[in-house]
Simulated scan of single mutants.
Amino acid sequence: MIYFDNSATTKVHPDVLSTYDKVSESIWGNPSSLHKMGENAYNLLEQSRTQIANLLGCQKEEIFFTSGGTEGDNWAIKGTAIEKGIYGKHLITTMVEHPAVINSMKQLEKLGFEVTYLPVDKHGQISVADLKNALRKDTILVSVMAVNNEIGAIQPIKEIAEVLKDHPKVHFHVDAVQAVGKGLTDLIMDERVDLVTFSGHKFHAPRGVGFLYKKAGRKLAPLLSGGGQEQNLRSSTENLPAIAAMAKALRLLLENETNNVAHEQAIREKIYDHLQKFEKVTIFSELGDKFAPHILCFAIEGVRGETIVHAFEDQGVFISTTSACSSKKGQVSSTLHAMQIDDKIATSAVRVSLDENNTLAEATEFNRIFDDIYQKFLKINS
């Protein structure tokens, strides 16, 4: 079995699962309780927060635990709108964001906010000039993903940050769900970035846990009201086993980050070099530093993406049709549509997404299986 769908979710690391089990069994008190069991739970909660903050180079008070990327995106966007709506009702994002961002923006539009959706070029990247021109006196938020989840394009976060230095009252939110452990920490944790979304199951932690970085001094309205956890900004009893496990997963991931990135790049390049030899193959993810090391999106002309996915599955290889969130809905890739790729090609798009556990041997086997699948489709369509 070859698992090349790591952008959808990753396998929980055995040591991370061990931490989850251990905490569930031995430190199961409520962190808000006053007794010794509650104190033990609280101490572990804060140790996990400190560890994550140290790994990212920020203050522990700037880390807020959530249920994952979707909540983090919703909170950053809607929390900003609620908090800063009296100062302005204009928000800026891109046409290639995750549905958690796009749908949050659409919901706010129904509530009277105005949203500018920046277009992208043929590489799936926005123009910083377009962003600069879109800024207004009533702009309160700019929300841009670091790494596109469908083709792996890296957005110009540093350049955007530079522009926003002249607009200090505008919140800058970065969706970093696909960027963790990919050699991009300096990018996503730029000093001008105010809010960053992370999701644990993208880096070998359990599902249903994540965290939001909120820069000290930036105000954000809570979406969940209740018992006042997370500095009164995110009420709900903390999922301590998953939080402790996530902190461990992040440490394990980042301690070998440089080697992991080089390894993933080598695997991706091996597949890329093979695919580009075929006449009816279109590759949307390029090599080089403008694209993340772990995502490769391509299409076989005349074959629908879901058909390609199942053909590989029959051979024990698991990939996806671009975004996992839209794969079962049969939707055309929003990113490819924004890139003005013809729908006939876009509906054929599939995504290979890697992690540090994949191997060059798996890439060789993938290429061999691809050859067989390609020839079969060629005969059917001839």
Rank of each mutant, 00 (worst) to 15 (best):
A41G: 08
K36P: 01
L131M: 08
K280D: 15
G330S: 11
K202L: 10
G227H: 10
K248T: 11
A346P: 08
L212N: 05
K328Q: 15
I2T: 12
I86R: 14
M105Q: 04
L44N: 02
S48P: 02
T94G: 00
K215L: 06
A41Q: 01
S18D: 15
T94V: 08
E238Y: 05
L287N: 05
A53P: 09
N367P: 04
V16C: 03
E71R: 10
I341S: 04
S143A: 13
N6M: 05
G152A: 05
D21Y: 13
F203E: 00
V142P: 03
L131G: 03
Y20F: 15
A216C: 09
A153E: 01
A338G: 07
Q107P: 05
R351P: 00
L220G: 05
A146K: 00
E114C: 13
V120Q: 01
H274Q: 10
V96C: 06
H201A: 03
T335A: 03
L378T: 15
E356F: 13
V23E: 01
H90M: 07
R192I: 01
L34G: 02
A41P: 01
V170D: 06
I154F: 01
G85Q: 09
E150L: 02
K270Y: 11
T185A: 08
S327E: 14
Q107V: 03
K379N: 14
K122D: 14
G181A: 02
D190A: 12
A176H: 01
G302V: 02
E365L: 11
G217Y: 02
T94W: 00
L45F: 00
K270I: 04
A338L: 02
